[in-house]
Design a protein around this nucleic acid. Structure first.
Length: 540
RNA sequence: GCGCCCGUAGCUCAGCGGAUCAGAGUAUUGGCCUCCGAAGCCAAGGGUCGUGGGUUCGAAUCCCGCCGGGCGCGCCA
């Protein structure tokens, strides 16, 4: 079976290089996809890279390499600009991707490069002290998409949610609910200091039927209540977790104590001011960190390290933690704490995807509060305002570390100009053409693809061929926004094609060929949308 | 003050292991439905890529300074 076009170009260049410049035969060959169709299907700057080392004029060198390239899948390459070698595929080579997509179906874009390796994506990890906020929404959209991307590359992925069910924040929650159950309102005498003032506290207090004096019972009820509520929201968002990991379990099963003992055994700790300290400065931290406070309790990062140790012990060679940038100081500490265990964990492990916060704009103003949560906009608010698909598409269409302004009016009132509808519409349009055609899909297998000689058809095939490497790259970089941008581009190319050419023409061979191309577009759109958790409607 | 991140069209953002990288969407303006869905297409205007240096044959992209913004700098989580 023929390899894909990119590989053909790479190996052809490699062969040419062996002849022209044997000393550089092992040089890294970068093959790019030119943005302008006029520059062909693939392009390499190898002559520019090697010109200096070989003391050659780059254009002449390029010329020589180009002449030495074995052709077959493409036309003889051309030299352009300062010394680029541009490759134009033969039409049949380029269009072969259509048959590949129709054959691979929903596996198109997948690969086996992950080889079943266990990886974990931890995201959301919201403590059950209130409804999920928009930041959690961004994490849910990012984390779920990153997990799907890793799955597509053959990894065995675990989606995990970690939460603190027993700390000081939870006590605050319990006291707030308890006060509310006793009829005390926020700010009144007897209201806990920095208590939670949202309307949901009142709901929980009203639902609680036990003894309000039993703060443990109140706590259990409130945690259970909020966990259930968060699950409802996550379900509405289309996100499922494989594992919910409780921080409290790390204390009860001895993991936390074990971590501290290991540090001590490794001589990484010392006593000072009645507290126990970890020598994190040995690993580049600004200053040493307290492990056990003078009151005997542990600081938060100890269970954090214990938790990550369990991830390592559970066999996850790659772990991606999705968190807000406000947690970036924990990155160093967790990694350092793991190093100090001497467990053979790599220095840069785990990976972190840190996202900036989301600012919600509506009616030209920033929305800072919601009725239910009090001090912030919730995931539920966003879903109610613009729908799940739009929320998910919007929240993954930006790099994680860029601040994101979520314009509710753009996503809602002008829904026809919303990028998610633009992409979905392309999908629905193809479906509509097929509905009108009414033929059997099997007929597409024999499509005479050589009938597709148009420039727009070539452009579409080129773009379709890029999908697998786009997915692989997005998975490697944990960057779902690449998929969102790809989808918009593919939808644009398709809409343009659709407006320029009629699909259901009288010429049967041409009609079937065009339908095959459309089917490939539809499949690729659906595969991409699925990766970012957005539906592919057949009608809109 | 220190650390990390970010400054690219009016607005929201891609591109940043250098070249074929000045881009998309939106907004504005002008065209396109007796014909597969106009939730669409075609076209125009709009940016010295925050700023000043440096490295390079070549910098939005790499390095340094400065300015502006975000986040973090607890025996809080």
């Amino acid at each position: 079976m023929a390899s894909d076009p990119r590989t053909e170009v790479e190996s052809a260049l490699r062969a040419a290089l062996a002849k022209v410049a044997p000393a550089q035969a092992r040089a890294h060959i970068l093959v790019e996809r030119p943005k302008q169709a006029g520059h062909g299907d693939f392009s390499s700057n190898i002559a520019l890279q090697l010109a200096k080392a070989l003391k050659r004029n780059p254009r002449e060198l390029a010329q020589e390499i180009a002449r030495a390239v074995p052709t077959g899948a493409f036309d003889p390459p051309e030299i352009a600009g300062p010394g680029f070698i541009n490759f134009r595929l033969r039409s049949a080579t380029r269009l072969a991707v259509i048959r590949r997509i129709l054959r691979e179906k929903d596996r198109y874009g997948c690969s086996a490069s992950g080889a079943g390796e266990k990886v974990q994506v931890e995201f959301v990890s919201a403590n059950p002290t209130g409804p999920l906020h928009v930041g959690h929404g961004r994490q849910a959209a990012l984390g779920d998409a990153i997990a799907a991307l890793l799955e597509s590359q053959g990894h065995q992925v675990t989606r995990e949610f970690y939460y603190n069910d027993a700390g000081a924040q939870i006590d605050k929650l319990a006291w707030s609910v308890q006060a509310r159950a006793r009829g005390i309102r926020p700010g009144e005498k007897g209201w806990p200091e920095e208590g939670y003032a949202g309307e949901y506290i009142e709901d929980i207090a009203r639902e609680f039927k036990g003894d309000a004096n039993d703060v443990d019972a109140v706590r259990r009820f409130a945690v259970e209540y909020l966990r259930a509520e968060q699950d409802v929201d996550l379900q509405a968002f289309g996100v499922k977790f494989d594992v919910y990991y409780l921080e409290s379990s790390l204390y009860t099963d001895g993991s936390v104590d074990a971590v501290v003992k290991t540090w001590a055994a490794n001589a990484k700790t010392y006593d000072k001011d009645g507290a126990l300290w970890l020598r994190t400065t040995e690993y580049g931290d600004d200053k040493d960190r307290v492990v056990r406070k003078s009151d005997g309790s542990y600081t938060y990062f100890v269970p954090d390290v214990a938790y990550h140790l369990t991830k390592w012990q559970r066999g996850f060679k790659r772990v991606v933690d999705v968190q807000g940038t406000d947690h970036h100081s924990t990155v160093t500490r967790v990694r350092v704490g793991l190093q100090a265990l001497g467990a053979g964990i790599p220095q840069g492990w785990p990976d972190y995807v840190l996202h900036s916060l989301v600012k919600v704009m509506r009616g030209g103003e920033e929305v800072k509060i919601s009725k239910r949560a009090g001090s912030y906009v919730t995931v539920r608010d966003l879903i109610d305002w613009v729908g799940r698909d739009a929320v998910r598409f919007f929240l993954v269409s930006r790099k994680a570390d860029s601040e994101f302004v979520f314009d509710v009016d753009l996503a809602r009132q002008k829904s026809d100009e919303n990028p998610v509808y633009y992409v979905q519409y392309a999908h629905a349009r193809v479906c509509s053409v097929f509905a009108q055609w009414g033929g059997a899909a099997a007929r597409l297998e024999d499509a005479k693809l050589d009938r597709l000689g148009g420039e727009r058809e070539a452009a579409l095939a080129r773009l379709l061929d890029e999908f697998p490497e786009t997915v692989a790259n997005a998975a490697r970089e944990a960057a779902p926004h690449d998929i969102a941008f790809y989808l918009r581009e593919l939808a644009a190319q398709f809409h343009s094609y659709y407006n320029a050419e009629r699909i259901l023409v009288d010429d049967e061979d041409l009609r079937i060929a065009r339908l095959a191309l459309c089917a490939a577009v539809r499949q690729t759109l659906a595969n991409g949308l699925s990766l970012i958790g957005v539906s592919s409607p057949e009608k809109m």
